[in-house]
Amino acid sequence: MDRKDFLNSIGMSAAAFALINCVGCKKSDTSSSTGTTGPTGVNFSLDLSLAANAALINNGGSLVSNGVIVAKTKTGSYIAVQQSCTHESYTLSYQSANSRFYCPNHGATFSENGAVNNGPATRALTVYNTQLIGTTLKIYS
């Protein structure tokens, strides 16, 4: 085997090895979109008199339940949106001081009504209805 053939065979072997490894790590179409949409059929209640839900007593507080971020805004309204970013499904946080939802992965931000304020996300968050009856907060689609 001459030098040209040897280098050619090594190059092809390395390329084949890299291709096999890349294919094994590639996200499938279904996994890349999983979690970028909010849960459907949402219907649950939170008892605000329980210690586990105490974050929702004060304005600016939030918690996560059933794939939904539930928050009490600075003005005292209850809001609920999907927990995952519509860009790549990373977990969002509620930033009450800025009245927004924030994705720490790529910096996407969403308004309290779910609209995209800053990309790379291009799709709004799924927003859920809230209803306070006594000390029970109902969250539903």
Rank of each mutant, 00 (worst) to 15 (best):
R3V: 00
N21L: 14
S84G: 08
G76S: 08
R123Y: 14
N66C: 15
K74M: 14
G119N: 04
T136Y: 10
N105Q: 15
I79V: 14
D29S: 08
G24H: 13
N129K: 07
V127H: 01
V116W: 08
L7M: 13
S13T: 14
A18T: 13
D2Y: 05
E88C: 04
T135M: 11
V116T: 09
I79L: 08
G35K: 08
M12K: 15
T109R: 00
L137T: 01
A115K: 12
T34W: 11
A54Y: 09
F17C: 08
N98P: 10
T73W: 11
G38K: 02
I57P: 14
F44C: 05
S77Y: 15
S13E: 03
T122M: 14
A108E: 05
G114S: 10
C85S: 07
F17P: 00
K4W: 04
C103R: 02
L92G: 04
I79E: 00
Y128F: 15
Y140M: 07
T130C: 07
A121E: 11
A108F: 06
R3G: 00
P39A: 08
V64Q: 11
I20H: 00
K4M: 09
N59T: 06
S45Q: 11
M1A: 10
S62P: 02
K72F: 11
L125F: 10
C103P: 10
C22N: 15
S28F: 05
N59A: 02
Y140G: 04
C25R: 10
G35V: 10
A51G: 04
V42R: 03
H106M: 06
N113W: 04
R100S: 09
G38A: 08
F17H: 07
S141F: 07
V70T: 06
A97T: 02
S32K: 11
L46N: 02
E112L: 04
N98R: 12
G11C: 03
F44S: 09
F110E: 00
L56P: 03
Y140K: 03
K4E: 06
Y94L: 09
T130V: 09
V42H: 06
A18D: 13
G38D: 07
S111F: 03
C25P: 14
Q95K: 14
S89P: 12
T36S: 06
K72W: 12
A108H: 00
N53F: 15
N113H: 05
T91P: 05
N98M: 13
G134E: 08
